[in-house]
Nucleic acid binder design. Structure first.
Lengths: 167, 167
DNA sequence: TTAAACTTTCAATATTTTTTGAAAGTTTAA
DNA sequence: TTAAACTTTCAAAAAATATTGAAAGTTTAA
């Protein structure tokens, strides 16, 4: 396997993996492209490499910036915008964990809380609903609090502090 | 909020959350319905509660069985099949973690391994591709090995062993 | 056996999500 | 100012995904 083929394979693998971390294909592919690029890229270059439209590129780069994964680079004397992504995988993982917690886990926790606190009318059905949503709520809270600790951990949390406990 | 409304809210919340753990809406909703039901349900009952077709119900129940989350219950003297889901949230979390690792994380690790081991021709681009896919590969392996430990952990791993370290 | 009761399959259809591209908007150099 | 260079927006189109429903398949009781 040569460079070009390997690069394309990386971009497509990462792209189809987008769903795993909750973003769409183009967004994931743009991130992947920047991740293995040795220099910041322009909208034009991204469009050309990934064969996607200007609008698509613009919207997805904006979303990546929103997530805090991609930053605009200002090249002196250049009019157009250059983009680059966070290159450190640990930092990347931290950002993603934080955003997913904020966007998805926290709202669900709130909903489960609301549901599990309905009035107990004594019926078996109501009691089961309360019991099960409470159990899920507790699990989600615990998982989220672990994620939160990880997010606030300093560099190398994964290999150093966490892995030690499990290995 | 009354029972019926709370139940519907739970099913729809869980359903739209399906993407978080990598399954489709109907599948997640069926699981949610069984999760708060006090007794196993038939295909007919699932269809009626969720207002989905027979085919849809059949296919998604099969997939849930495939995942190991739902089981067929044989009711003596009854011809039709009854379904119920794993009711313990910790066990549920373990099953899901295990399946996602097997279905998604492991294949990606293999691909990253393959890409990161292309021949280094000395060019900057190739070196960056190798370095970055290697870094991702290591992160994915570490995360997966943690997931694996969790999966093999006994009951209550979350609250007992893990939470203690982080709280 | 047979036929009723039930389950599965899958082509067609519907729905949802993503992408396009051209027009509108913005910025900057002169 | 103006106009070229660039970015954003968004309605329409395309692509991907999920759902339906009826026919085919399977199981079981008699």
């Amino acid at each position: 396997m040569q460079y070009q083929e390997a690069k394309e394979k990386f971009i497509s693998t990462w792209g189809s993996l987008g769903s795993l971390w909750g973003i769409n294909k183009a967004m994931a592919q743009i991130q992947a492209l920047l991740f293995v690029s040795t220099k910041p890229l322009t909208t034009e270059e991204i469009m050309e490499e990934l064969k996607i439209s200007r609008g698509n590129t613009s919207m997805n780069v904006r979303q990546l910036i929103d997530w805090g994964i991609v930053t605009k680079e200002l090249v002196p004397g250049e009019r157009k915008e250059y983009f680059s992504t966070e290159k450190d995988v640990q930092e990347l993982a931290r950002i993603i964990a934080k955003e997913r917690s904020r966007r998805e886990i926290k709202p669900v926790i709130r909903t489960l809380e609301e549901i599990s606190s309905i009035k107990d009318d004594g019926s078996e059905n109501t009691q089961e609903l309360i019991r099960q949503t409470k159990a899920l709520h507790d699990l989600a809270e615990t998982a989220d609090s672990i994620l939160e600790k990880i997010v606030h951990q300093k560099q190398n949390w994964l290999t150093k502090s966490v892995l030690k406990m499990f290995k």
